[in-house]
Write a protein that binds this DNA or RNA. Structure first.
Lengths: 126, 126
DNA sequence: CGGTATCCATAAGGATACTG
DNA sequence: CAGTATCCTTATGGATACCG
């Protein structure tokens, strides 16, 4: 009985960057943080923002981000229930390096695609 | 017969940041790019720099980075063979946003660990 | 509305042995 | 020296159905 739901582990990572990448290096985290950058959003609003994420993955990723202190989850016990997600100061502090990364990706995405095409062409010369 | 060795896929990602994360969001890519930042290194030198990476993973990750244009691989056909890995201009251009991310990770790693500890404590109040 | 439970497919990571 | 091949384990992502 270890009380670690959903297979989430708490392994202490000695290397900070690896630990951070484990958190934000996945498919969805960055998209969620971007979506929350302008301000608080509710669960279904996030679904609509990110569009092709499933409830399952949104729920899981939000929980990780909350656990690691990037966002807060506030439940308003109304009927129907309302839940709001907001960036913490830690989450907001991450926005700057993140947006640099996003900017780099936007600028250089074409180069990467081009490199891949070149590489593939070379491979196909038998 | 698709000629995609090792299960590597070439899927066109519509979203630049996702595409970039697929490449550098894994366990090893960033460590390799950091190791190559000061200059050219050989295969076994990289092994020693990164220390706990296996030959298998180093080989695979280097190939991806080469394919996507971050590094070049130069084979000197001597005996024994010598292979040198160097950052391309694209790879070097990535260094700045990457080092911002690393700096953020170093600065805020403690906050993340603290947030996790707090979260876990809350969960354990049954 | 905002999730969780279940089950499944694929991808990532790795140990070990072998090779040009 | 610098890898590749093989085999295996675990992690990640997702579809679907159900719940408070």
């Amino acid at each position: 009985m270890t009380m670690v739901p959903d297979g989430e582990e708490m392994l202490e990572q000695p290397c900070p960057i690896r630990d951070v990448l484990d958190r934000i290096g996945n498919q969805w985290s960055l998209l969620i943080l971007e979506a929350l950058a302008p301000g608080t959003l509710r669960f279904n609003a996030l679904m609509r923002e990110i569009d092709d994420i499933s409830k399952q993955m949104l729920s899981r990723t939000l929980k990780q981000l909350e656990r690691d202190g990037f966002i807060t989850r506030t439940l308003y016990p109304e009927v129907p229930p309302r839940v709001e997600y907001t960036l913490t100061p830690l989450g907001r502090s991450f926005l700057e390096p993140m947006q640099q990364l996003v900017a780099w990706a936007d600028t250089h995405h074409g180069d990467i695609v081009a490199a891949r095409t070149r590489y593939q062409a070379l491979q196909e010369q038998t």
